[in-house]
Design a protein around this nucleic acid. Structure first.
Lengths: 148, 148
DNA sequence: TTACAAGCTCAACCTAACTTGAGGTCAAGC
DNA sequence: GCTTGACCTCAAGTTAGGTTGAGCTTGTAA
């Protein structure tokens, strides 16, 4: 039934592999939440573990805390996320994740292609040509990496 | 506007979409190289465009400049990279890129799975369980994200 | 031959994402 | 009730990855 085993910040740190100071930091940024005991100590619901897991994995692939926070905002404040809540978050991120995956593959396969083409022929390298094509779109324009 | 072969720092900036200051920075870090004119101005070979392209894409997916620099070190100093040179770089990165791709898919599909499982059953969530499993491997152990 | 955009160096500054440290509190075992 | 380790807050420090600005030089088009 109940026995909502609440976790201390130290327990969350141990189980998630994230430093206590980082958890404080995430909380200050609004990425995770806690309530306090009468003695002012933090207590976390178990769903914080999933949140932290998502935060770390997303960070590892180059997503900023700000973006992660924005995505996590779709999760509810006062209750355990439901199927619909996660559904929304997943949907919000899907495109971005797909783009990242595509980018990684381009990088990996682009390098492979460079082997194929020998990278001797500057004008034929898929990587470099995209660059030049973009430069033609206007000076100073920041390259849209996703377009690579 | 003369020789097509050599590029000024401004030209590289325009074509790559990277700021001049960033190019200076990359050069200071040894990620790209240039030689100087008699007037002490930088001139770049055209292969710098490919290097910069790789640097930016790699960064975008969360690879640090230090790692990128290490990978680029396999490229030759004094000549245009050959097929074998790129082959080596690609090989060096292949595993890392594959891991990143796998990680992104896990994140994307993990969220999808969470929808499937409703994320109501804490003990069955693939994301969270991995966390706990890792925590069992020892206190304070940094989570190996790749293992997710 | 001069105007001025583009380049150069070097130091200072900036944001993100944390960590460290000082100084003080809380709680569980002996 | 005392000790000890886990917590608390807040400020300052750190690393990565650049940007900005000052002061000076180069190079090119009118």
């Amino acid at each position: 039934m109940v026995a909502v085993t609440e976790l201390t910040v130290g327990q969350v740190a141990t189980r998630s592999g994230v430093a206590v100071s980082a958890l404080h930091f995430y909380e200050a940024r609004g990425l995770i939440r806690s309530h306090r005991t009468s003695g002012n100590q933090r207590r976390y619901g178990r769903d914080v573990l999933r949140r932290v897991a998502i935060i770390r994995v997303a960070q590892e692939v180059g997503i900023s805390l700000a973006e992660i926070g924005a995505a996590l905002e779709s999760l509810p404040e006062g209750r355990t996320p439901t199927r619909e809540d996660w559904n929304l978050l997943s949907t919000n991120w899907r495109d971005q994740l797909d783009q990242k995956i595509a980018q990684l593959k381009k990088l990996r396969d682009g390098l492979t292609d460079c082997i194929g083409c020998g990278c001797m022929s500057i004008d034929k390298c898929p990587l470099r040509n995209k660059e030049d094509r973009l430069s033609a779109q206007g000076p100073g324009a920041r390259r849209l990496l996703v377009a690579l």
